[in-house]
Every structure is written in C-alpha cells, then in structure tokens.
Nucleic acid binder design. Structure first.
Length: 778
DNA sequence: GCTCGTTGCTTACCT
DNA sequence: ACAGGTAAGCAACGAGCG
C-alpha cells in the first residue's frame, strides 16, 4: 500500500538484525507514522591510488575476506572526485560500526583513499534516497505488527520502496508543546544535584498554560506529571528557550538522581545530546527557540520577550522580566511564589505562540539542506551549507570529501571607502545583487576548476583572476557553479511563485521562508569556501571572489566619477552616490554591459550623515525613519541611556536639522543622570563572554564581574552576557564594575556615565556640527 | 614611583 | 565552528622623568 509521508525525525537503529533507518513523521490523514527501512546497507568508497586498478584492488579485498567478515559486496563503479572521472570500489557492509575501521584497514593495505565512511546511516539514507526532511513523499509500504513495545505511533510500516518526492510545500498540522522549568538555588545558579525543580510549565494549543509545581525537596511527582502530560499529548514539536543547554540537561540530571525514567521519545527512549550540542527526542523535533533569536542580530539580549517584541507578537509584552539573580528570594518568600509560577506559565504560553510564528523558517531550511528539523536550527551556518552540498554532490555523482583538520590561511578581503564626512542630501545606495555568489558562478570559481599553480594551459581556456592570478577552467561547469546556479534559479522561481500566491495565504508565508532559506545558503557559499572546516574548502575560490569583487567595485567607482556621479562612500558591494536619476541609470546599464552584473538602486536617503569613520553612518529615509549603521545606537555593548541619547541627537540633526535642539536633549539627559532619575536598567552595560573566564589575558569590567558572580555560585560560560554598572569609587574601571542587582542610581559613578557614555555617544554626531563638549554642560 | 604615549586585547559591528 | 575589514574602549607595557 501507499503512504504519503511527511518526515519529522530520522534515526538509525543498531539492535535489529539489519541496519535499519527509522523514519518518523505524519501521513496526510494526520496519523503519526513510523516507517522502517532496511533497504540501504552501510557502505563506503575506495579510490585506488598509484598503479593499482579498481579490479585488482577488488580482488585483494576479496582475498583478504577473513579480515573483513562484515563485507557483503565489493563492486567496481565509476565516480567523480572533484570533477575528475575515476574508477572506484563500493564496499558494502552488513554493520554500521565497521565502516571506518574497514576503511582505515583497506587504506593501509592498498594505499589510495576512502570516501564517505564518515557518514551515518541516517545521513546516508537521506542523501541516497533524496528524502526531503520536513517535506512530503510517497512510500510503498507494508503494515507491520508492533514489535517495538513502547512506541506510540498510529501506524507502523516497513518501506517497500524508496521515497518519491511530492511537490507540496505546506506542512501538516503539528502538535506543539512548549515547556519551561522553574528552578532556583539558594546561592547562585540552581544546581541539579541539590536544587529540585520548583515547577514545570507546559503550554499546548487550545488550553491554558499549566504548571506542575513542587514546593518541597522531592520533585519526582512534578516530573512524572510532566512526563504523563507530555506523553498523553504526544507532541510532534517540543519547544523551549535555552532548553538545549539549560532545561533539558537539568531535567535529565534530576531524573537520573530521582530515578525517574524520562521516557519522552516515541520509542520510549529518553532525550539525548546529539550532533550539534542539541537535545534530540526520538520521533519528535525538539526546538530551542533561543536559536531563532540568535539568528536575528537586531535582538541584542536573547530573551523570549525580546524575540516576541521583534516579531511583534503583542500579548507577550505584559510578561514581567524576572532576573535570574532574584529568583530564589522570590521563591523563598511563599507570598511571591505564585507570581513566579504565573510568570513561568505566561512565558511558556508565549513560547507556544512564538513557535507558530517562527517554525516555518527552520522547516524550509531543513527541507533545503536535508538536516532534520531539530538539527538544522542548532547547526551553525557552515554545517548547513555542508549538508546542502553533500546532497548536491551525490546527485552529481561526486564523492563527498571528509572534513579534515587543515592549516588555515587568511586572504585579502573587500574594499571599504573613506566616507566623505558630513551631511549629504539625496543620496542613493547602489548595491550589486548577490555579488559573491554571482561572481563565483560567473567565473566558475570552484575547487574542481582551479588550475594548479605552474600548470601550462592555454590562456583562452581559463579565466585568470586579477591581482591574485588564480586560474579557473572556463569549462566544464564546476561544483560551486552548478550548485549556485541551482540556488540562484530556485530563488527566482520562488519569487515568481510568490507573485502568484494570494496575499496573507499560508503558501505565501511558506514561500517567503523558503526564499529566505535559499538566500541564506546562497550567500554563505563564499564564506564557506574560505572556511578551513568546510568539506569543500578552497581558499583560492574565496580569495578570487574577493579579488574580482574589489576589481568590480573599483572600476564601477571610476565609471561613476567619469559620468559625473559623486561617490560618497562604498563598502564591499555597494556605492553611495549623490542621486541623479539619469546618470545612475547610465551607470547601471554600464555595469550590466561591462560586467554582466546587476547593480540596483536600494535605499534612498533624504539626508545622510557620515562621521569620519568607515562603517558608521546614519541616514533619513523617505518614510521618515532613520537608518542607523554601526553607531552606538545599534551596538549592544553600550548603556541604553547612551544609545537613546545618541538616537535623539540623530533625530534632531537629520529630521529637525537642529543641533540646538539636540544640545537641549543631551543636557536634559545629563540632568536626569545627575539627579539619579535614570533607571538602573538604562545604565546597565552588557558584554559577552567569548572565552572561558580563565583564558582572559586582560582584566576587563565584564570579566571581573563574571569572576565575582562565579565566586557567588553563578554558572557563567562562553556565550553568556554579563551585565554590569560602574559604581562610584577609585581605581581602574574593572574595579568599579559591579552587578546591577541591589544597587540604585545613587551608587553609580555619574562622572563615568557622563564622560564615557553620554558625551562620547552624543559628541560622535555633534562634533560634526561645531558643537563642543563644553556646550553640553548643565 | 609616576606620567604618558603606544601596543594589544577585547567586543561588536558591516557587507 | 561561513569570510575579512573596521572602530573603539581600556588594560598593560615601557620609556622617560626626577
């Protein structure tokens, strides 16, 4: 029989007779389905080295079969290794575990090299069958009587065919469960070894959020209630915030201690830490929405509230932010417990709402890259590209190289122009569309088309990159060219479909996220090529793209000047010119005919201000809004009060064109600070720990405060933001930095905030208008 | 032992 | 743990001074 199937999760199982892939998902009737497939056996490739032929290598392996009892088959095949045709052996084994050891042994015995022995069976299956994660496909299946015991699916099948893809982008209705833990430790961070879970909040569609509360020392009842609720609801998606590094490890540890079986998987297994440091639950997708927030640079402090605010999910606005440092005190005071519990319930309800808003993007990214939903959100950009390229390589008959430790080389990057400082009216930004991927595609920049240095080739068969002199074959199409062409076409295709789709339709929402996913992968290919961790690392490719980019922008600037356009600034793939429609049009046409590239009018500034620095400017757009780039306003490591004051100044300067009003505003703020009328939250400065505390060579405010917090029992690690204020006193700045908790505006160092926050932020702008610092005195 | 200019560590931004 | 280019603050260092 046939099963139309949407894939949610995939894993492999070793205990069964044959290596088996488990495909978890839904059918088109909304049943939860598990399909077992043993149709692909583990295998790897061997490419003979030296004089050896594939056939002679095959014989030697077969002769040595005593050493390789788990080999099922050795076949001679043709394949491609970085574009070069070669003969190779496909070595199929009966067990997963032997792949790398056999590959190693064969390499030792015969020289040559092995490929794809590093792929897990689930990855193997996804790649070979072109299965779409988070997408629909048809399977020929046979029903199976349940032999799995605890699994909780509605339908259990054995696959009788490979999947055949259905073009349907709309996901099925999924059951989503949001959860959060409430924990509190008497001193510092809650410690799962001694501090019980105080409450577990859950939220699912169609009911009010609830919490399983534990007021004593034994949280096993609350945990069991949570497990029962979870399994009764049987979610497809489990969402949390910071759950991968906080809630899940805590819960797992508590369960170990309390000897509660945390059987949340659809096969009865517990959550476990997986590939990208995320937590995986068999048969479901566990999503940590803080990963969504991390992908949005405008959100400086990654919280549920800030994510909601950014996405304009209004109901979340009323949720109180409770500082972790105050939590125990609130819990300890029983009159406040209810407030805490209500708080965690409402944030959990908010999480559920946010999941609705945000899940389409990771789903599309999953469908595109082939990484299962839970992995794709946790995986860094480089691994997403890696996964996408692996799928593409297989379709093109290319062997997939292994990730190797290799020396890393930097190279010269893009050009940034010194801006014409001051105010300019009527400025338009001209951007090259997808410059780097377009150049890579156009000039066939790819590891497999790179001509070895010193190799003699005819000049017209290759393209020679200006300045760096790398050469690339004009023919045939390289791997990156093929892949980028597909991506660029796909994006065009989606845009076409979007134009057809009904406004506010589900389809349009899905297409929008699909387009975003394609764009992200496309634009990451350049950086990926220059990343030493990439399977298809080729410094020359990235270096060449950058060099051609420099050449292109430089010549465009020359042409702009030649046609009488005044160039005010430029960075990498953009130039800012004083607007002149006809001349801009002329330049656009020239870029098209000279380079075959598209340059487009993008932002139009009524008025734009450049400070003396590159990458820092602010402009007034036609709709009256400000576009602020690089300045303190958009930096997360300045106090809010300094950012606010600078934004006010920019509004006064750009919109009202009045430095006098700006001065008045700054003075008003200075007065407020002096009077202690500015809230601590506006004075707080935050910086990220980018390494282990012990590894710092210099004493800085945020590291000193981090050390202090660690001494108090707080757990702080890489990636955490440290909040501090500067208090009155003597000595170095790092000696005056303190955690804001328990301090008031009277404790702060007013001089510091005026001299090192307010005035520099304001003067950065005002000094361009002849205002001196003394004019800010009150 | 102090001041002052320089160097280098550090973070966060831009494209 | 996609790239390089850039600004900016502050600690650390070392030279020069007395």
């Amino acid at each position: 029989m046939k099963c139309r199937f949407f894939l949610l999760d995939i894993n492999e199982h070793r205990s069964e007779a044959k290596p088996t892939v488990r495909l978890w998902g839904l059918d088109d009737a909304g049943n939860r389905v598990l399909i077992l497939s043993s149709m692909i056996m583990p295998y790897f490739y061997y490419v003979p080295g030296g004089q050896q032929t594939a056939e002679s290598a095959r014989q030697r392996i077969v002769e040595a079969k005593a050493k390789f009892p788990k080999i099922l088959q050795v076949e001679v095949q043709k394949g491609k290794l970085l574009g070069r045709q070669c003969e190779l052996l496909r070595v199929t084994c009966s067990e997963l575990g032997v792949l790398s050891s056999y590959a190693k042994a064969i390499r030792k015995m015969l020289q040559g090299s092995c490929y794809e022995d590093d792929l897990r069976l689930s990855v193997r299956y996804l790649i070979d069958t072109e299965l779409t994660a988070c997408g629909w496909q048809d399977f020929e299946v046979q029903p199976l009587k349940s032999e799995l015991g605890e699994q909780t699916v509605d339908r259990l099948f054995v696959a009788k065919s490979f999947p055949s893809r259905i073009v349907d982008e709309t996901p099925p209705k999924l059951r989503v469960l949001a959860f959060s833990l409430l924990t509190a430790g008497e001193r510092g961070s809650a410690n799962p070894r001694k501090d019980p879970i105080r409450a577990i909040a859950v939220a699912v569609d169609g009911r009010k959020a609830e919490a399983f509360v534990n007021e004593g020392e034994d949280d096993s009842k609350a945990i069991s209630e949570f497990i029962a609720f979870h399994n009764r609801f049987d979610p497809d998606l489990v969402v949390g915030f910071e759950s991968n590094n906080s809630a899940w490890p805590y819960l797992i540890q508590r369960c170990k201690l309390q000897q509660v079986k945390l059987a949340l998987g659809r096969d009865g297994s517990g959550p476990h830490t997986s590939l990208f440091g995320h937590v995986s639950i068999a048969g479901r997708a566990n999503l940590d929405l803080s990963d969504i927030a991390s992908g949005i640079p405008e959100i400086k402090v990654k919280t549920i509230q800030n994510l909601a605010r950014h996405l304009r999910v209004p109901s979340v606005d009323e949720i109180e932010t409770i500082d972790e440092l105050e939590r125990y005190a609130l819990w300890d005071d029983t009159s406040n417990r209810k407030r805490l519990i209500e708080n965690v319930k409402s944030s959990t309800a908010a999480l559920l709402e946010l999941a609705e808003f945000t899940v389409n993007f990771p789903m599309q990214l999953s469908a595109l890259t082939g990484l299962p939903l839970d992995q794709v959100l946790a995986a860094a950009v480089g691994f997403r590209v890696d996964s996408y390229l692996m799928k593409q390589a297989h379709m093109l008959g290319e062997l997939i190289p292994r990730r190797v430790e290799q020396p890393y080389f930097t190279y010269r990057g893009a050009i940034v122009l010194e801006p014409e400082t001051g105010i300019h009216e009527d400025v338009v930004v001209l951007d090259f569309s997808s410059m780097y991927p377009t150049l890579m595609e156009k000039y066939n920049l790819s590891p497999d088309t790179l001509v070895k240095a010193g190799e003699k080739v005819s000049d017209d068969s290759v393209f020679t990159v200006p300045e760096v002199n790398h050469r690339f074959w004009k023919k045939p199409d390289g791997f990156y060219r093929t892949v980028l062409r597909r991506l660029l076409n796909e994006r065009g295709r989606i845009k076409g479909e979007m134009a057809e789709a009904a406004e506010k339709s589900t389809l349009l929402r899905v297409l929008k996220e699909r387009e975003r996913a394609v764009k992200i992968i496309t634009n990451a290919c350049y950086g990926y090529a220059g990343w030493a961790g990439a399977r298809w690392y080729a410094k020359e490719v990235a270096e060449s793209a950058a060099a051609i980019g420099r050449d292109t922008i430089t010549r465009t600037i020359q042409k702009a000047n030649a046609v009488g356009l005044k160039v005010i600034y430029g960075d990498t793939d953009s130039i800012f010119v004083k607007d002149d429609r006809d001349r801009v049009d002329q330049l656009v046409r020239w870029v098209d005919s000279e380079f075959g590239l598209e340059i487009k009018r993008e932002r139009e500034y009524v008025r734009v201000l450049f400070t003396e620095a590159m990458k820092r400017y602010a402009g007034l757009l036609r709709d009256g809004s400000l576009d602020i780039v690089g300045l303190e306003v958009v930096r997360g490591d300045w106090s809010d009060i300094a950012r606010q004051v600078q934004e006010q100044v920019l509004v006064r300067i750009l919109r009202d064109q009045s430095s006098e009003k700006a001065i008045q505003d700054v003075r008003a703020t200075i007065r407020k600070i002096k009077n202690g009328e500015v809230a601590m939250s506006d004075l707080t400065i935050r910086k990220t720990l980018t390494k282990q505390i012990e590894d710092y060579k210099v004493r800085t405010p945020h590291v000193e405060v981090a050390k202090l917090l660690v001494r108090e029992g707080w757990e702080l690690g890489v990636g955490d933001k440290v909040a501090y204020v500067i208090v009155r006193g003597s000595g170095k700045l790092f000696q005056k930095a303190k955690p804001p908790g328990g301090l008031g505006p009277r404790d702060i160092d007013v001089e510091y905030y005026l001299d090192n926050q307010i005035k520099p932020a304001a003067m950065r702008i005002l000094e361009r208008f002849g205002v001196s610092e003394s004019q800010l005195a009150v």
